[in-house]
């Protein structure tokens, strides 16, 4: 016997998130100007930043992310800021952090909303003005789910 169900849900989605690294060349042209604006003239390179996202989540309303930057966090050499941008939300900014050497480690973790496959970029700004990025492609698969 076959039955058909129409499941009306408020905001729900089961998001299966698959994360892929993105080569600098293929970074979305939405993200590149955002990164450049944040860098404010400082050189932008790939590397030194690591973006961790849970590979599988039950609901896109709360996706754990962690960003770590390779830096000794001394007065002489430290990260002054970390920015996180997304490609396809109505607003591309997710969060901008200001850090000081007091932190001891260049690391932030939070939980974000993700409802669509898109690129995410983390940018770290060093005290010498240079900027480092890690761009990932996040594939959010929502089974049998039609969005209005």
């Amino acid at each position: 016997m076959k039955r058909r169900i129409f499941f009306a849900n408020s905001v729900g989605l089961m998001a299966s998130v698959v994360v892929r690294p993105v080569a600098a060349l293929t970074q979305s042209d939405v993200l590149t100007p955002l990164v450049n604006a944040y860098a404010a003239g400082g050189g932008v390179r790939e590397g030194r930043v690591k973006f961790d996202i849970a590979p599988l989540v039950d609901n896109g309303n709360s996706v754990p992310v962690e960003i770590t930057v390779d830096s000794p966090m001394t007065q002489a050499q430290h990260v002054v800021g970390i920015a996180l941008f997304n490609e396809k939300n109505p607003q591309n900014q997710v969060a901008e952090f200001t850090l000081s050497p007091l932190a001891g480690r260049a690391r932030v973790a939070t939980r974000i909303r993700l409802a669509l496959s898109q690129q995410l970029v983390a940018v770290a700004k060093m005290n010498d003005g240079s900027c480092w990025t890690h761009t990932v492609e996040v594939l959010v698969t929502i089974a049998s789910c039609i969005e209005e």
């Binding site: 016997m1 076959k2 039955r3 058909r4 169900i5 129409f6 499941f7 009306a8 849900n9 408020s10 905001v11 729900g12 989605l13 896109g60 309303n61 396809k88 939300n89 109505p90 909303r113 993700l114 409802a115 669509l116 089974a143 049998s144 789910c145 039609i146 969005e147 209005e148």
Partner: peptide, 18 residues
């Protein structure tokens, strides 16, 4: 326009009588 946490989403699916 893309929106996160949209109001109503209709999930239509066919389920087999397992």
């Amino acid at each position: 326009m893309r929106k996160i946490g949209v109001a109503t989403r209709v999930i239509a699916l066919a389920m087999l009588g397992f």
